[in-house]
């Protein structure tokens, strides 16, 4: 169909597409290509220092084990957060889409997207107040639990995971919800009338039919979490050094923009590679 547009339709399509693509060119492509350009320079191209082209910034990744170790740590963090978000978010979306009707659903939906309404930095600092020693959480537990409660959650990897799960949970709920809602209730009723149990319906019917939404949510979470830097820095304490924080350091602390840019593009390449390797599964899910 797309190939057979006549001249008038083509122009109309171009008119409708132009703003979006113009915006993408300006907002994504240009800064990204500037960063790509930086990543091949010996120094940031401002100031009086002469600048030359080099590949050294990319080689720096392999010169020490530090960056590789941190990248693996960040990928693991991404897997943890994505896994927990799916475990918590998917059942929630299922109940929202299939069990609850009317106003209750609207109210619950509002609660789900509530985290999006507050600034992410505010969210993380609230977690810091809740998690820290003698903070809100420990005091609350002290009231209901006999004896001295010392969770010591603040400044641990667990605190980073908690903060990130809270921030990214809505993505998986929203995308799964949309996919689940598209499943016709009659199909489920038909399965039930043919004698399928609840687990069978979930495993063979609901899950495959909503897998596209679930996977879209997982990708939306995994990619930013691997590059996250604010949550680890504030909640992670001495464990809070990840790939994202090192990239941030290069930009704001030591002003080695070329190295920071090169490290970012290596991250981009690794994330794309991970997505490419998992694409057979993704494609199966989307069919």
């Amino acid at each position: 169909m797309a190939g057979t547009l006549n001249a008038g339709e083509g122009r109309r399509a171009a008119g409708l597409l132009a703003p979006a693509y113009l915006w993408l060119t300006l907002a994504v492509f240009m800064p990204l290509s500037a960063m790509l350009f930086f990543s091949f320079l010996t120094a940031p191209p401002f100031g009086n220092e002469p600048v030359a082209a080099t590949l050294a910034n990319y080689f720096a990744f392999f010169e020490t084990g530090t960056y590789g170790r941190l990248l693996w740590k960040s990928v693991k963090l991404g897997l943890w957060v994505t896994g927990l978000c799916i475990l918590i978010g998917y059942p929630c979306a299922l109940v929202l889409a299939k069990q609850i009707r009317g106003r209750a659903r609207e109210a619950l939906f509002l609660l789900v997207i509530l985290p999006f309404w507050s600034n992410s930095l505010v969210r993380i600092f609230s977690w810091a107040i809740v998690l820290r020693g003698n903070g809100v959480l420990e005091r609350a537990l002290d009231l209901v639990w006999p004896g001295d409660v010392r969770l010591g959650l603040m400044f641990t990897p667990a605190a980073v995971v908690i903060g990130l799960v809270h921030s990214y949970l809505p993505y998986v709920i929203l995308t799964s919800y949309l996919a689940l809602q598209a499943i016709d209730d009659d199909i489920i009723a038909a399965a039930r009338s043919l004698g399928a149990g609840r687990l069978t319906i979930l495993r063979r019917l609901v899950l495959p039919l909503s897998l596209s939404g679930l996977l879209a949510g997982a990708v939306l979470i995994f990619v930013p979490v691997v590059g996250s830097f604010m949550e680890p820095r504030i909640l992670g304490g001495r464990f809070g050094t990840y790939y994202g924080t090192v990239v941030e350091d290069q930009f704001v602390a030591v002003f080695n923009w070329p190295l920071g840019a090169a490290l970012s593009f290596i991250l981009l390449a690794v994330v794309l590679l991970i997505l490419a390797l998992s694409s057979p599964i993704l494609r199966k899910g989307l069919q």
Binding site: T64, G65, T66, R69, L70, K73, R238, F239, T241, V246, D249, V254
Partner: peptide, 12 residues
């Protein structure tokens, strides 16, 4: 120094 410090932090 930066390499030393980042290496130390990364091993945590």
């Amino acid at each position: 120094y930066l390499a030393l410090w980042q290496g130390l932090k990364a091993r945590q």
